[in-house]
């Protein structure tokens, strides 16, 4: 018995040596669409060995091994990618799996949830630090800060703030983005008035409630534009045609990942949205 286990020991030691040679290169698993975006923005994608299922942009990220939904990770699956750094959104989970990954000795950097310009900039810098790409992070942070400064100046100059509703067309009643959603933050940041404030999260709204909310602009995700049948499809949804937005055909499709992910592309998309809002005549 002892002889045999010694033999195995040798085999394992050999296997280990082979691994150590490759262990110097950074091997990063990015968990969260905004984090993956940032890694690409920092031009550090060559160190990525895996992403989660919310990492949809850029398209190249979808070619990487996918560890599944960010809140339903599998410890062995992630470890099989032999990462030496996990960059994760703060609510990656489930907690027992995060504990297992930590116990396995993998360095885990948790990024706070951010829906503010300061938060986005801080996140870029923090990921830059974790990847050892501070210079690239600085450059991007400066660019984003300039864009946000431009945005806040433009918003301050708005005469009125149009009433904006974010909709997700689903089976049955469409769902509206209420308080504490990324959509609400994005709307306010771009100078709109977030009108669905009677509830939190994304909740179904009836046709009547939609009319009563009287939005000047209706936002939807561009990713799902085809599913809802474009602008004309949205106008067909019960109630939409009776709203100011419907009458003026102010149905706007936004890039959900870029805008609502609050990653490095948020600022430019907020600027774009602000220009739409500024064009609304009360």
């Amino acid at each position: 018995m002892f002889e045999r286990s010694r033999c195995w020991l040798g085999a394992v030691a050999l296997a280990l040596c082979a691994q150590v040679a490759a262990a110097d290169a950074p091997r990063v698993v990015a968990l969260g669409g905004d984090i993956t975006e940032t890694v690409y923005a920092l031009d550090a994608q060559q160190s990525l060995v895996g992403v989660d299922s919310t990492s949809l942009w850029p398209a190249a990220a979808r070619e990487l091994p996918n560890v599944g939904y960010v809140r339903q990770l599998a410890a062995e699956g992630v470890l099989a990618l032999r990462p030496n750094l996990i960059l994760a959104t703060h609510d990656a989970g489930p907690p027992p799996v995060m504990a297992q990954l930590r116990e396995a000795g993998v360095r885990i950097e948790l990024m706070p949830a951010t829906r503010t310009p300061e938060g986005v900039v801080a996140k870029v810098r923090e990921i830059g630090r974790a990847l050892g790409r501070e210079a690239a992070a600085d450059a991007i942070a400066h660019r984003i800060e300039t864009q946000y400064a431009e945005l806040s100046k433009a918003v301050a100059g708005m005469k009125s703030h149009p009433r904006v509703l974010f909709l997700m067309a689903t089976e049955g009643s469409p769902k509206a983005g209420g308080r504490e959603t990324a959509a609400a933050s994005a709307i306010v940041l771009a100078g709109g008035t977030q009108i669905a404030d009677g509830f939190t999260g994304y909740k179904p709204v009836s046709a009547e409630a939609l009319v009563a909310l009287a939005p000047d602009v209706i936002l939807l995700m561009r990713e799902r534009a085809d599913e809802v049948g474009g602008v004309s499809g949205v106008l067909q949804l019960p109630g939409v045609a009776l709203t100011p937005a419907g009458k003026a055909r102010r149905i706007v499709f936004v890039d959900g990942q870029a805008l609502l992910g609050f990653g490095p592309r948020n600022a430019e998309h907020e600027l774009e949205l602000q220009r739409v809002f500024a064009g609304v005549q009360p």
């Binding site: 895996g50 560890v67 939904y69 599998a74 699956g77 099989a80």
Partner: peptide, 9 residues
């Protein structure tokens, strides 16, 4: 469940 869609589950 563990191997079908590895590294996910």
């Amino acid at each position: 469940a563990r191997v079908a869609v590895a590294p996910a589950e």
